[in-house]
């Protein structure tokens, strides 16, 4: 599907009052950015909202497929979850763990003060 088409579909859905597409407004975008610690410039909020609405609307089309009696797909690979035995095989090298830390001392990571 061409992008213009999907955007058109999105707006069509919005006009019809489609719930998921409607759910994304500028407030939602600002909140999502804040929760994800993204510094979203003010002039990007409106375009980002339009893009997300379009993406959501595009995904909404999946609701047209009848999935009654179809088990949810949980992975693209036909494999079972591998498990490990309870054996200590790693650790013991604080210097390695701290190698990329901007600041460290006495084996600790050091970060700006966080107080609850």
């Amino acid at each position: 599907m061409k992008q213009a088409d999907s955007a058109a579909t999105a707006w069509a859905l919005v006009r019809q009052g489609n719930s998921a597409a409607m759910a994304i407004d500028e407030r939602t975008v600002r909140k999502a950015a804040k929760l994800a610690r993204l510094d979203l410039a003010e002039d990007r909020v409106a375009p980002m909202t339009r893009e997300l609405v379009a993406i959501m609307a595009w995904i909404e089309q999946l609701n047209e497929v009848d999935v009654t009696d179809v088990e949810p797909m949980t992975s693209a690979v036909a494999a079972t979850l591998p498990l490990r035995e309870d054996v200590v095989t790693a650790g013991g090298d604080p210097a390695l763990v701290l190698a990329n830390a901007p600041r460290s001392a006495d084996g600790f990571f050091i970060v700006p003060k966080v107080v609850e």
């Binding site: 309870d86 650790g91 013991g92 604080p94």
Partner: peptide, 26 residues
């Protein structure tokens, strides 16, 4: 357990700072 839920680092209490840390945990 002796090791962590998703890594092979020791789950023992205490220890030197960051001595029971694998690259998964970090």
């Amino acid at each position: 357990s002796k090791s962590k839920l998703f890594s092979g680092a020791s789950a023992a209490y205490g220890g030197e700072p960051n001595a029971h840390v694998s690259l998964v945990d970090a």
